[in-house]
Amino acid sequence: MNVTEYIASGILESYVMGAVSDQERREVDCLSSIYPEIKQELEQLSASLENYALLHSIEPPPQLKASLLQKLTFEEQEDRPEPIVRPMPVEPTSRPTFQVTWIAAAAVGLLLLTFSFFLVSRLNNEQQTVSSLQSTNSSLQTELRQLRDRQQRDEQVLALLRQPGTRTLELRGNEKAPNGDILLYWNPQNQQVAVEVRSLPSLQPDQQYQLWSLVNGKPIDAGVFDGGNAAPYLQRLNRPIGQADAFAITVEKRGGSPTPTLSTLLAMTPVGS
């Protein structure tokens, strides 16, 4: 059996994500107990997926559940009892009198007025229900689009994490960018670098953020990227980086600079062991 081809087939990623059949699951369990390379790859994938989930975990706001339940709960319209109309006792006569005719007409008019009020009230309630449903549907559509965007972003990040040797580093902004937050994905084996901008302010049109790799104190251009809400979620940089003692971010002119501008240094983090 070619273990390398089996690992590259993608079945181990599907196994970690729980997207395999029972037969495929038994097959992976069996092969992982036979081949140490497969078992090691499974452990690396599980650790990467767990690390990614911890980095992206977001507590939902406590009022979200109550808000959804309130939107999706519709009280049933209570049945309004029809008024009971009892005929007025009249003395038996040989023919209807004017008083009896007037009372009968008033009773019919009252019944029609009550029924009309019921219809108007019911129509208003139905219109409010339709409006509430439309608002709820719009909110659910927005949440669905957000979930689809998040799923697409997660798939892009997972494609990086399942590459053997990929490392994840977090760069926090200094006093010049206190809210800065960037995730760096670096693979020393294939020398690929990508950044996930979680929080960085927008720059002037003629400026860009530039990533630097520090090797023995010497800065090496690792590529430029954009920040702000309009920036892509995951940006792959076009500079091969095989070695790094640390990574740093500065603000430079659009297109990058051959040397870093230390006065615009926003973040730095060591690579570690």
Score class of each variant (00 low, 15 high):
P61T: 06
D226H: 14
Y209L: 04
L183E: 10
E252P: 02
R162L: 02
Q77C: 13
S48H: 06
G217Q: 09
V271W: 07
G165K: 00
A159Y: 00
F98V: 10
R198D: 02
A231G: 02
S131A: 15
G10R: 06
L64H: 10
T129M: 10
N187E: 02
A222V: 00
R150K: 07
Y185E: 07
I7P: 01
N51M: 14
G18F: 02
S46E: 15
G242A: 03
R150D: 13
A244I: 05
Q40V: 07
Q208H: 11
A246E: 05
R239D: 03
E24Q: 15
N2G: 05
K39D: 14
Q44K: 14
V90T: 13
Q207G: 10
R239C: 05
T142F: 00
L203K: 05
S14L: 08
L54N: 12
S273M: 12
K253E: 11
A248R: 15
S48Q: 15
R145N: 03
T269Q: 08
T250N: 07
P178H: 02
S21C: 07
C30W: 04
R150F: 13
L266D: 04
L64K: 04
Q99W: 04
L158A: 12
S131I: 03
D22N: 11
S57D: 15
V90I: 15
N179L: 00
L49C: 14
R172A: 09
R236M: 04
E155H: 12
D149F: 01
Q163T: 07
L112Y: 01
Q77N: 12
N2H: 03
Y52N: 08
D221G: 03
V3Q: 08
A47T: 12
Y209G: 13
R198Q: 06
M88V: 13
D149H: 01
T264D: 01
Q146E: 05
T261S: 08
L158N: 11
S202N: 03
V130M: 14
E91P: 04
Q235A: 02
L214D: 03
T114G: 09
F118C: 00
Q235V: 04
Q152A: 14
P205S: 11
F74Y: 15
E170H: 07
P219Y: 04
E252C: 10
S263G: 05
E76S: 13
G109N: 11
V3H: 08
T129V: 08
R145A: 08
I11C: 02
L49S: 14
A231H: 01
G242T: 00
R122Y: 11
L265W: 12
E126F: 10
G227M: 03
G217E: 07
L161E: 02
I84T: 14
R80K: 10
V108K: 09
T142A: 09
Q63R: 04
M1W: 12
L160E: 06
Q163N: 01
Q63W: 08
L113G: 11
P188A: 00
S33G: 15
V120S: 02
K218N: 09
T166A: 08
V157D: 01
G180Q: 03
R236E: 08
T129R: 13
V100S: 01
G165V: 00
Q134C: 07
E50L: 14
A222D: 06
N216Q: 14
V271R: 02
